[in-house]
Protein backbone atom coordinates (compact mmCIF):
# COMPACT_ATOMS: atom_id res chain seq x y z
CA UNK A 1 0.00 0.00 0.00
CA UNK A 2 1.21 3.44 -0.87
CA UNK A 3 0.38 6.11 1.69
CA UNK A 4 2.52 8.85 0.20
CA UNK A 5 -0.55 10.83 -0.90
CA UNK A 6 -1.23 11.54 2.79
CA UNK A 7 0.97 14.50 3.56
CA UNK A 8 2.52 15.02 6.94
CA UNK A 9 0.56 18.15 7.79
CA UNK A 10 -2.82 16.54 7.06
CA UNK A 11 -2.03 13.82 9.61
CA UNK A 12 -1.02 16.42 12.21
CA UNK A 13 -4.17 18.38 11.44
CA UNK A 14 -6.31 15.28 12.02
CA UNK A 15 -4.58 14.50 15.32
CA UNK A 16 -5.01 18.14 16.34
CA UNK A 17 -8.76 18.00 15.56
CA UNK A 18 -9.12 14.81 17.62
CA UNK A 19 -7.49 16.41 20.67
CA UNK A 20 -9.43 19.64 20.07
CA UNK A 21 -12.70 17.73 20.41
CA UNK A 22 -11.43 16.09 23.63
CA UNK A 23 -10.25 19.45 25.03
CA UNK A 24 -13.44 21.37 24.26
CA UNK A 25 -15.68 18.57 25.57
CA UNK A 26 -13.74 18.15 28.82
CA UNK A 27 -13.49 21.93 29.36
CA UNK A 28 -17.24 22.20 28.92
CA UNK A 29 -17.75 19.38 31.43
CA UNK A 30 -15.44 21.16 33.92
CA UNK A 31 -17.70 24.21 33.99
CA UNK A 32 -21.03 22.39 33.75
CA UNK A 33 -20.82 19.16 35.77
CA UNK A 34 -22.45 19.23 39.19
CA UNK A 35 -19.92 17.56 41.43
CA UNK A 36 -16.74 19.56 42.03
CA UNK A 37 -14.71 16.36 42.37
CA UNK A 38 -15.73 15.23 38.87
CA UNK A 39 -15.00 18.64 37.50
CA UNK A 40 -11.46 18.48 38.95
CA UNK A 41 -10.93 15.11 37.24
CA UNK A 42 -12.23 16.50 33.91
CA UNK A 43 -9.78 19.37 34.39
CA UNK A 44 -6.99 16.75 34.45
CA UNK A 45 -8.25 15.38 31.11
CA UNK A 46 -8.35 18.91 29.70
CA UNK A 47 -4.80 19.70 30.86
CA UNK A 48 -3.49 16.46 29.35
CA UNK A 49 -5.04 17.29 25.99
CA UNK A 50 -3.47 20.75 26.15
CA UNK A 51 -0.12 18.99 26.73
CA UNK A 52 -0.90 16.97 23.58
CA UNK A 53 -1.43 20.27 21.70
CA UNK A 54 2.02 21.40 22.84
CA UNK A 55 3.60 18.19 21.57
CA UNK A 56 1.78 18.62 18.22
CA UNK A 57 3.12 22.18 17.90
CA UNK A 58 6.77 21.07 18.40
CA UNK A 59 6.92 22.52 21.92
CA UNK A 60 8.02 19.29 23.58
CA UNK A 61 9.66 20.97 26.60
CA UNK A 62 6.48 22.91 27.32
CA UNK A 63 4.39 19.74 27.06
CA UNK A 64 6.52 18.02 29.67
CA UNK A 65 6.36 21.09 31.93
CA UNK A 66 2.57 21.09 31.51
CA UNK A 67 2.26 17.45 32.56
CA UNK A 68 4.68 17.79 35.50
CA UNK A 69 3.38 21.08 36.87
CA UNK A 70 -0.31 21.03 36.07
CA UNK A 71 -1.33 17.39 36.10
CA UNK A 72 1.21 16.48 38.78
CA UNK A 73 0.98 19.58 40.97
CA UNK A 74 -2.03 21.81 40.47
CA UNK A 75 -4.55 18.95 40.09
CA UNK A 76 -3.31 17.36 43.33
CA UNK A 77 -3.65 20.72 45.12
CA UNK A 78 -7.17 21.22 43.79
CA UNK A 79 -8.18 17.66 44.70
CA UNK A 80 -6.92 18.21 48.26
CA UNK A 81 -8.89 21.45 48.51
CA UNK A 82 -12.02 19.73 47.17
CA UNK A 83 -11.66 16.92 49.69
CA UNK A 84 -11.05 19.32 52.59
CA UNK A 85 -14.23 21.21 51.74
CA UNK A 86 -16.21 18.08 50.82
CA UNK A 87 -19.10 18.90 53.11
CA UNK A 88 -20.07 22.04 51.20
CA UNK A 89 -19.06 20.98 47.68
CA UNK A 90 -21.30 17.93 47.45
CA UNK A 91 -23.22 17.36 44.25
CA UNK A 92 -26.52 17.73 46.08
CA UNK A 93 -26.07 21.48 46.19
CA UNK A 94 -26.80 23.78 43.29
CA UNK A 95 -23.39 24.65 41.86
CA UNK A 96 -24.30 27.33 39.33
CA UNK A 97 -25.93 30.66 39.99
CA UNK A 98 -28.95 32.22 38.33
CA UNK A 99 -26.98 34.19 35.71
CA UNK A 100 -26.54 31.09 33.54
CA UNK A 101 -28.41 32.38 30.49
CA UNK A 102 -27.04 35.91 30.60
CA UNK A 103 -23.54 34.42 30.84
CA UNK A 104 -24.28 32.25 27.79
CA UNK A 105 -25.42 35.33 25.86
CA UNK A 106 -22.28 37.25 26.87
CA UNK A 107 -20.05 34.37 25.75
CA UNK A 108 -21.90 33.97 22.43
CA UNK A 109 -21.59 37.68 21.68
CA UNK A 110 -17.88 37.64 22.57
CA UNK A 111 -17.42 34.59 20.33
CA UNK A 112 -19.10 36.28 17.36
CA UNK A 113 -17.12 39.49 17.81
CA UNK A 114 -13.71 37.88 18.34
CA UNK A 115 -14.05 35.19 15.65
CA UNK A 116 -15.20 37.84 13.15
CA UNK A 117 -12.19 40.01 13.94
CA UNK A 118 -9.88 36.98 13.68
CA UNK A 119 -11.30 35.94 10.32
CA UNK A 120 -11.01 39.41 8.74
CA UNK A 121 -7.53 39.99 10.18
CA UNK A 122 -5.80 38.46 7.15
CA UNK A 123 -3.08 36.68 9.13
CA UNK A 124 -0.96 34.40 7.01
CA UNK A 125 0.04 31.29 8.91
CA UNK A 126 2.75 29.03 7.63
CA UNK A 127 4.44 26.17 9.36
CA UNK A 128 7.67 26.89 11.14
CA UNK A 129 10.10 24.13 10.30
CA UNK A 130 13.06 25.83 11.92
CA UNK A 131 13.02 23.70 15.06
CA UNK A 132 14.33 20.24 14.29
CA UNK A 133 14.83 17.96 17.26
CA UNK A 134 12.72 19.83 19.79
CA UNK A 135 12.98 23.13 21.59
CA UNK A 136 14.53 22.20 24.93
CA UNK A 137 17.99 23.40 23.92
CA UNK A 138 16.94 26.80 22.60
CA UNK A 139 14.53 27.33 25.53
CA UNK A 140 17.31 26.59 28.01
CA UNK A 141 19.69 28.90 26.19
CA UNK A 142 17.15 31.75 26.12
CA UNK A 143 16.27 31.28 29.82
CA UNK A 144 19.90 31.54 30.86
CA UNK A 145 20.83 34.51 28.65
CA UNK A 146 18.12 36.87 27.40
CA UNK A 147 15.40 36.04 29.94
CA UNK A 148 17.56 35.46 33.01
CA UNK A 149 16.03 38.39 34.94
CA UNK A 150 12.38 37.23 34.53
CA UNK A 151 13.57 33.73 35.38
CA UNK A 152 15.03 34.87 38.72
CA UNK A 153 11.99 37.06 39.45
CA UNK A 154 9.76 34.02 38.86
CA UNK A 155 11.75 32.07 41.43
CA UNK A 156 11.26 34.86 43.99
CA UNK A 157 7.53 34.91 43.19
CA UNK A 158 7.34 31.15 43.77
CA UNK A 159 9.14 31.48 47.11
CA UNK A 160 6.81 34.30 48.16
CA UNK A 161 3.76 32.23 47.13
CA UNK A 162 5.04 29.26 49.13
CA UNK A 163 5.60 31.31 52.30
CA UNK A 164 2.39 33.26 51.76
CA UNK A 165 0.27 30.13 51.36
CA UNK A 166 1.69 28.69 54.57
CA UNK A 167 1.21 31.98 56.44
CA UNK A 168 -2.42 32.26 55.33
CA UNK A 169 -3.51 28.72 56.02
CA UNK A 170 -1.23 27.72 58.90
CA UNK A 171 -2.55 27.40 62.44
CA UNK A 172 -1.76 30.36 64.67
CA UNK A 173 -0.89 29.35 68.22
CA UNK A 174 -2.32 31.92 70.60
Amino acid sequence: MDFSFISDSIVTYGVFLLFAVVAVASAFLVVSVRSVMHSALFLAVFLLSVAAFFFIFDADFLGIVQILLYVGGVIVLILFAVMLTARVSSSLLQQTNEQKYSALIVCALLFIMLSYSILISGLQGFENTLLPGGTAKSVGWLLMTVYVLPFEVASIVLLAALIGAMAIVGKKDE
Binding site: A23, V24, A40, T96, N97, A103, V106
Partner: peptide, 25 residues
Amino acid sequence: VLFLIGVYGVLTRRNAIGILMAIEI
Protein backbone atom coordinates in the same frame (compact mmCIF):
# COMPACT_ATOMS: atom_id res chain seq x y z
CA VAL B 1 -13.71 28.61 22.33
CA LEU B 2 -11.72 27.28 25.30
CA PHE B 3 -11.19 30.81 26.63
CA LEU B 4 -14.92 31.56 26.40
CA ILE B 5 -15.75 28.31 28.21
CA GLY B 6 -13.47 29.56 30.98
CA VAL B 7 -15.27 32.93 31.03
CA TYR B 8 -18.60 31.12 31.25
CA GLY B 9 -17.32 29.05 34.18
CA VAL B 10 -16.09 32.12 36.07
CA LEU B 11 -19.44 33.85 35.54
CA THR B 12 -21.68 30.96 36.58
CA ARG B 13 -19.88 28.90 39.24
CA ARG B 14 -20.86 29.45 42.86
CA ASN B 15 -18.08 27.32 44.31
CA ALA B 16 -14.81 29.25 44.66
CA ILE B 17 -12.76 26.16 43.72
CA GLY B 18 -14.84 25.84 40.53
CA ILE B 19 -14.00 29.45 39.66
CA LEU B 20 -10.30 28.69 40.18
CA MET B 21 -10.56 25.73 37.79
CA ALA B 22 -12.27 27.91 35.16
CA ILE B 23 -9.39 30.39 35.49
CA GLU B 24 -6.96 27.53 34.77
CA ILE B 25 -8.89 26.80 31.55
